[in-house]
Design a protein around this nucleic acid. Structure first.
Lengths: 206, 206
DNA sequence: CTCATTTTTGAGCGATCACTCAAATCAAGG
DNA sequence: CCTTGATTTGAGTGATCGCTCAAAAATGAG
């Protein structure tokens, strides 16, 4: 039988993720990858095909992890709307712990590579998946009676899909903001304010 | 006296802006710039010093234009809060007319270059200037009695500076969203919803 | 026109880019 | 142990990167 590989694929992907997340796709060179993965070019190409395909795998992994994290946060709160507020508040902690980067890799990729690139399209699909999960949560919130009922008709801005889009706008804006050199406390304040706004807008009295 | 230059500096900067805005800093090569500016390398370097410094001038120009546009929108509405809502709604038109890119160049730059880069720091300063202008507008709104008074004390989320930060979060998120392949109508809907949320949050009854 | 001065040109610089492949290395089977 | 076959290596590929500079072109003064 063939010898077993020296490198763990998942671990390599995590190392590549940290590098791409920090430096962006173009600025991360193969020399950088050699260092991050502790692999020589030949091994990298044997394992992943090309820088572009490696980045695609990294994106998919990142997106999957993000969805899992969202799912965990939502599951921890019996109230769907409360769960969404919790998720926003949790993003306020982005600067509490060291990270490769504070902004969302999917948004970074979408902005850096432009809408034509194959990996940017993958990033878009993953953002769509997040938005779909947000929509599902807002639907659950409506069914739980957590939304302002007199506004929740089919033509109002309180539709779950439209709420989800605004919610994602807040998440994207918050994470872009997190990349600016503001303090951890300021970021928490911003995230908490946004969470309060969400609750205020959805559940305010009529 | 010396011969006059064949190229208009401002026009060259506009061409460079379109290129950098569309492709990003790293992906825009000097070959691309030669085409966009209709100048050969020697002329480009004689005029602008380096790709990095040229990009810095482009950023400064973009930031100045953005501030002017904000000022114009705010001046067109006697109500400060209404002006801020108008500015959000106007961003909903980003997909109505062809553009090099729909996202904000300052955010693109901040995310692509990382917080250490000199030009990323310039982008941050320009974002700060925008946020400062937002704060000024919210202060004017408070003085005009357009904010929910019982919440506008010094420790509340209704402080102009905190409102401005949330407002900028919405703008950044909206413009990042604009880079996704959504229709012009959807983008208008999102922008209008965000504008309504802003009015709802600031001026809702108490 | 000639001259003086400045701008513009573009071939070409060294460095680095993503990537290849023949050879060396290593693990498992016999 | 040796053989087998997949894995790993790293020097080297051509292409492109940002950039330079001596020469050519262009302008205004006299």
């Amino acid at each position: 039988m063939p010898r077993q590989t020296r490198h763990d694929r998942q671990h390599s992907l995590d190392q590549a993720l940290a590098l791409f997340w920090r430096k962006g796709y173009h600025a991360a060179s193969l020399k950088d990858l050699e260092g991050a993965l502790d692999m020589r070019p030949g091994s990298i190409y044997a394992s992943f095909g090309s820088k572009e395909r490696l980045f695609g795998e990294v994106l998919a992994r990142y997106g999957r992890q993000g969805l899992v994290e969202l799912e965990r946060t939502l599951a921890a709160n019996p109230s769907p709307l409360g769960g969404l507020a919790d998720y926003l508040r949790a993003l306020g902690g982005l600067r509490d712990t060291p990270r490769p980067c504070h902004a969302c890799l999917l948004v970074k990729t979408l902005l850096e590579l432009g809408a034509q690139d194959a990996n940017a399209r993958l990033a878009q699909e993953l953002l769509d998946a997040m938005e779909a999960r947000f929509t599902q949560a807002f639907k659950a919130a409506r069914e739980a009676g957590e939304l302002n009922e007199h506004k929740a008709n089919d033509h109002s801005a309180q539709q779950p899909a439209r709420l989800a889009r605004r919610y994602q706008t807040m998440v994207m804006g918050l994470r872009a903001h997190a990349e600016r050199p503001i303090s951890a406390a300021e970021l928490h304040e911003l995230a908490d304010d946004l969470a309060d706004d969400l609750l205020s807008l959805c559940a305010r009295r009529h």
